[in-house]
């Protein structure tokens, strides 16, 4: 193996069945050939959150058709695939299992190596298909399932976790506030849209874990969520209509203020010149804008993949698999387990 090759990546850690295909050159330049996503999000909407069993059932139905579409989009057949990568964790146990079992079967049938990879590291790796090789970077990953600050010296090597949420994930907070304000699930895009019409300084909501003795790189959104709920309930008691746009904007400002402040501080402290955003919440327009502003002020380079690459997808798994293939990493065994709480330090299982 000269390090070049085509990798098919499978992602089923939550409610998106993603299949992506990435070709990597011997020079280490990845190229995105396909990124097929089947989402079961609409089936979860009436439950106000992702229902694991509903997601797992949808993955089983969507898996093989998604592989077909990805190969067709890339103009390839199974014979062209040089390796299969799959999210081994973290994520919903039953959902992960569908993708891992499918990946094993494809890898065995095509007689190619299998890479069971870490979902969080894949969120970082996907940026390379848009912006090229990644220098050592400080990554902020925020979604409905995770809120993590990671130091990533090298994509194919170990990742150092610097901080994470101690209660709700950032995206979860958006979902809960959306429900409180009568906005649909998933909350992120709806809160973002409502906030554009509102005043972010209308209410000064608390910034979690920003005291001098708090963990500098951990996050907490549970207190903020309670503060917003109290505010809305107080208005309701007075019979005052809730100014949805102002509350959404003020809530969103409290979230992105903390996220960006801690990210820039971590980049400085750990000597990283590049900051990378990933995860579904990285599609938030205010997070992107404030991160850009603060990175510019601090002399840091900000990289944010386009929204379809930020939310969970198969291309990110294929991208990480491609870097592992090029680094000649040892493939995973066919008894690879799906690990719902896989630590981020394990990039390849």
């Amino acid at each position: 193996m000269n390090g070049a090759g085509i990798v098919l990546g499978i992602e089923t850690s939550c409610d998106e069945t993603g299949v992506g295909i990435v070709r990597i050159s011997s020079g280490g330049i990845p190229e995105l050939l396909a990124n097929e996503i089947a989402s079961s999000v609409e089936e979860h909407a009436r439950f106000g959150g992702v229902v694991p069993e509903v997601a797992s059932r949808a993955h089983l139905q969507a898996m093989v058709p998604a592989v077909h579409r990805a190969l067709a989009t890339a103009g390839l057949t199974g014979r062209d695939i040089d390796a299969v990568a799959v999210t081994a964790g973290p994520g919903l146990a039953g959902a992960l299992l569908v993708g891992v079992a499918a990946a094993k079967a494809y890898a065995a049938a095509w007689d190619v190596p299998l890479y069971g990879v870490n979902h969080l590291a894949a969120h970082v790796a996907v940026d390379t298909v848009q912006h090229g090789p990644l220098p050592p970077a400080l990554a902020l990953l925020v979604s409905g399932g995770h809120s993590s600050l990671l130091a990533v010296p090298d994509l194919a090597g170990p990742v150092t976790p610097l901080g994470a949420t101690i209660d709700d994930a950032a995206g979860e907070a958006f979902d809960k506030i959306a429900r409180l304000l009568g906005l649909p699930f998933p909350g992120g895009p709806h809160v973002d849209r409502a906030a554009r019409e509102g005043n972010p300084a209308a209410v000064r909501f608390p910034r979690g874990l920003t005291g001098p003795r708090d963990a500098p790189f951990d996050f907490s959104f549970s207190g903020l969520k309670t503060a917003v709920a109290r505010h809305v309930e107080a208005l309701a008691r007075e019979g005052t209509p809730v100014p949805v746009a102002d509350v959404a904007a003020s809530f969103q400002e409290a979230v992105v203020d903390v996220l960006t402040a801690k990210t820039v501080r971590a980049a400085r402290e750990f000597g990283m010149d590049t900051v990378l955003l990933g995860g579904g919440v990285a599609a938030n327009s205010r997070l992107r804008a404030l991160a850009q502003e603060r990175c510019d002020a601090a002399g840091l380079t900000l990289r944010v993949p386009r929204p379809v690459l930020c939310t969970d997808n198969g291309a990110m798994v294929a991208a990480l698999g491609a870097h592992l293939l090029r680094a000649d990493a040892t493939p995973s065994a066919l008894d690879l387990p799906a690990d719902s709480s896989l630590p981020v330090t394990e990039v390849l299982v």
Binding site: E53, S56, M63, V64, H68, A101, A105, Y106
Partner: peptide, 19 residues
């Protein structure tokens, strides 16, 4: 039981597709 059942189903579907 669903979780185990799906392993066999998706393995069969993927093997059939790939082969």
């Amino acid at each position: 039981p669903f979780t185990g059942l799906r392993v066999g189903m998706v393995t069969a579907a993927a093997l059939g597709d790939a082969l």
